[in-house]
């Protein structure tokens, strides 16, 4: 098998603080194969967006980034500023978390869809870029695309804006498409439409995808494999089917218990399960297992760093418990 498109090992990101620095990512490994869709799941604040921004080289200026290995499509060391910059908008494209604020309110959609293509297609004329934008906008399900090109962002609904943002990513035909919480800001019906648009796109293009979400449901719909993150560390990863069928890390199980069944009847009485406790402060990380304080199954051993274990093909987790459970 050929090398994966993205191979990141031991990615560390920290922000200098007044007294101690905040360790936001701790030794994160992520591999994305050619044409593979990987989901990145975890509670808010677990560092998912940080991974996505690191890939684009878009972290804040004061971020301290280091990685054991950072390879993209055969090129090494892609976190170096110049390398990351060269990939942006050509080989990696990103759909941002909040479609309401991701577009400039004072310029038409068309203008913005043109300018984001310039880096990718430097030799094309404006009319060619415009035609391509119109076509892709129609492809993601925008009705009356030619006329809508001349509209301003505030004239679109949230779902339509998210389609514009997805169209941006498609326009540059990237090798890797990152979608950061692509449906979080949308209501349920619109969410279903956007998921459908993303799924169609997956079938049509051969690009790899990294889908960031706090919802296991969305990832199950869109992805081949999943990486579960907690407080800046990867606690479990593997094929979506295997992880859903047999979640090995207590955190993954807790996350799954929190999901609402989208097909169940709405019951206002139903209490939504939540994981008790809060994500530890990145500036004060415990030395042992990072989840121990909130884990219902913790024991004395958990004060030591947990081992990395592998069951069947590619299904890994880091925990002191018995893997056979």
């Amino acid at each position: 098998m050929s090398e994966a498109l993205v191979a990141i090992e031991k990615l560390n990101v920290s922000y200098p603080g007044a007294t101690v620095s905040a360790h936001v990512l701790d030794s994160v490994d992520i591999t994305i194969g050619h044409g593979e869709a990987v989901g990145l799941v975890g509670e808010s604040g677990s560092g998912k967006s940080t991974v996505a921004f690191a890939l684009l080289g878009l972290l804040a200026d004061d971020a301290d980034v280091s990685a054991g290995r950072a390879a993209f499509d055969g090129r090494e060391n892609v976190f170096a500023t110049k390398e990351a910059e060269a990939l942006r908008g050509t080989e990696i494209a990103m759909v941002f978390q909040d479609p309401m604020s991701a577009l400039n309110p004072l310029f038409t959609i068309g203008t913005q869809l043109i300018d984001i293509q310039r880096r990718r297609f430097p030799n094309e004329r404006r009319s060619q870029l415009w035609a391509r934008a119109e076509r892709v906008l129609a492809e993601v399900g925008m009705p009356d695309a030619p006329r809508r090109m001349r509209a301003y962002p505030h004239e679109f609904s949230g779902g339509m804006r998210q389609r514009v943002v997805i169209a941006m990513a498609l326009l540059v035909e990237p090798k890797l498409l990152i979608a950061d919480e692509p449906t979080t800001a949308l209501d349920a019906t619109v969410e279903a439409q956007v998921v459908e648009a993303l799924r169609r796109l997956r079938r049509r293009t051969r690009s790899s995808m990294l889908v960031v979400s706090h919802s296991m449901g969305l990832i199950a719909e869109l992805c081949d494999s999943v990486v579960v993150m907690y407080a800046g560390t990867v606690v479990e990863s593997g094929p979506v089917k295997a992880v859903l069928r047999k979640p090995l890390h207590p955190y993954t199980r807790a996350l799954l218990a929190c999901e609402i069944d989208p097909y169940a009847d709405f019951d206002p009485e139903q209490e939504l399960a939540t994981i008790p406790g809060i994500v530890p402060d990145p500036a004060r990380r415990p030395s042992g297992c990072i989840f121990a304080a909130r884990c219902t199954e913790s024991h004395a051993r958990c004060s030591e760093p947990p081992p990395h274990r592998q069951v069947e093909a590619g299904h890994r987790f880091s925990c002191w418990q018995d893997a056979s459970r």
């Binding site: 684009l56 908008g89 604020s101 400039n104 310029f107 984001i116 941006m168």
Partner: peptide, 26 residues
């Protein structure tokens, strides 16, 4: 510092264009 500028940076739109066009107007 707004999100729409980050979008443009993510697509490698030149800093000059971001500053003179997309940031100056607002």
């Amino acid at each position: 510092g707004e999100n729409h500028i980050r979008t443009l940076r993510a697509y490698g739109v030149s800093e000059a264009k971001i500053l003179m066009k997309y940031a100056l107007k607002p």
